[in-house]
Design a protein around this nucleic acid. Structure first.
Lengths: 109, 109
DNA sequence: AAACAATACATCGGAACTCGAGGCATTGCA
DNA sequence: TGCAATGCCTCGAGTTCCGATGTATTGTTT
């Protein structure tokens, strides 16, 4: 049964920032939170998530500290002011674009 | 001012099929209709549109006939039954995914 | 008449996003 | 002992999209 993916390229950075706006977190936790809170609809893989986190840090959207907890290495990410600003902008952009698509797919003229 | 693109990878084929569900049309007209009906928010370029149309035809979602009108060559595309089915599926998928993102960006738990 | 925008098609290279596969290591449960 | 879950990472491949470029006609403006 043919169906387009609707990958929503570019939504992951925004979703990561949104997750971090609730407080510092680490990669694995961010991914599982997005999956859980979307009831499994949004399920980004590790090969996508970690590079995205690195890019966000490179661009100053998040900062990170590596910590050792219970034998496991965790890299905790924190939202920066710049990242918070980008989050707000991206939320508006999402509303703008998804609203437009809804208008077309919903049947508006 | 940093802001993520929200390219919405994969939405163009669905938008094309939706445009064709209103009747046969040609590439240039499909693009301008999407732009006009979305009030400029959705503005896919030619380098994106024409390859997408070719892929849709290759996959049997649309069929085309080349016609000469007023000196201009126009390739008219028509939605096939397969394309119509894919459109319905993709609409549901869009609601599923965009709804999930709305849930996260809107502040739901 | 010349210049230009709009219409109309197409292809190509590069950038960006995502996945799958693979690698490495620890904890905890069966 | 084996296996799932946790936790990090990288690499290659596929897909989408844009910008640039090319070709050609129509209609408007200067």
């Amino acid at each position: 049964m043919y169906c387009f993916f609707m990958n929503l390229k570019g939504s992951l950075p925004t979703l990561i920032l949104e997750a971090l706006s609730r407080g510092p977190s680490h990669g694995y936790e961010i991914a599982s939170n997005i999956k859980r809170r979307s009831r499994g609809v949004l399920d980004f893989k590790e090969g996508t998530l970690y590079p995205a986190l690195h890019t966000l840090e490179r661009d100053g959207m998040v900062s990170s500290t590596s910590e050792l907890e219970g034998g496991r290495t965790r890299r905790y990410y924190t939202l920066t002011d710049k990242g918070n600003l980008a989050l707000e902008k991206s939320k508006l952009e999402w509303q703008r674009v998804s609203g437009a698509i809804n208008g077309l797919l919903g049947g508006a003229t």
